[in-house]
């Protein structure tokens, strides 16, 4: 089969953004020239996006600005944060209207929620605190599993498995009144009972990541 003559593919690029804070073109030209004098290679030929967020004048001379930038050998690909009144003018000048990452619709972050369990977690039971910390007021038995995207605090004996930072959070910790775990893991790094026995010098403690390795700290609880 013949290769199609064109293909559309999504890609993302890093573009420099020039913020225009003043309507006075002469003042902008002055400051631009002094910046170009310092680091011409940084600007010349590089694609630029013009941020018009500070411009409120609906009759702003956008064409004049474009000519000014072109005369300094800058390549203008579009405008961003333009007030609605200027968007038509920008389109007429052949400039793209670009939405910045912050402006575009981002997935709303779920609020962080803490899960509190006030009983023993028994063998065969599994508890998962999604997107937050897990607090157990009780023991976690052999064969039980407690998992959290955040940290895990156990006010009791940890005999089963505890997995913190299940979503990759390397700052998550596991704190237990007594650490006799079958397995502890943070952001995928894990210790089995024998590793734990080799590292943890005391019963109650805190397991966390130092770099890419787990460490155990003594805590007096």
């Amino acid at each position: 089969m013949q290769k199609p003559s064109l293909e559309l593919k999504g890609s993302s690029f890093t573009l420099s953004v020039i913020h225009i804070n003043h309507t006075d073109l002469a003042a902008v030209a002055n400051e631009l020239d002094s910046k170009l004098a310092i680091a011409p290679q940084f600007f010349i030929g590089a694609p630029l996006v013009v941020n018009l967020g500070a411009i409120t004048d609906a009759n702003y001379n956008l064409a004049g600005l474009k000519d000014l930038l072109i005369s300094r050998q800058l390549v203008i690909v579009g405008v961003t944060s333009a007030p609605t009144a200027l968007i038509k003018q920008a389109k007429a000048l052949g400039l793209a209207i670009i939405k910045s990452g912050k402006q575009s619709e981002t997935q709303p972050q779920l609020p962080k929620t803490t899960k509190i369990v006030r009983q023993n977690v028994r063998s065969g039971q599994q508890i998962y605190a999604q997107n937050g910390d897990l607090i157990i007021v009780g023991a976690v038995g052999n064969g039980a599993e407690v998992i959290a995207d955040g940290s895990i605090h156990i006010y009791g004996n940890l005999r089963g498995k505890a997995m913190a930072g299940a979503n990759g959070d390397k700052n998550a910790v596991i704190i237990a009144q007594s650490l006799d775990a079958e397995l502890v893991s943070i952001a995928g790094q894990y210790w089995l009972t024998e590793n734990l026995q080799a590292h943890a010098t005391s019963k109650s403690g805190c397991i966390r990541l130092a770099g890419d390795a787990l460490t155990a700290e003594t805590l007096s609880l």
Partner: peptide, 13 residues
């Protein structure tokens, strides 16, 4: 003891 723990979990759920 471990099986009893398991059964206690069943009773609770």
């Amino acid at each position: 003891v471990r099986d009893s723990d398991r059964i206690l979990g069943m009773l609770q759920s």
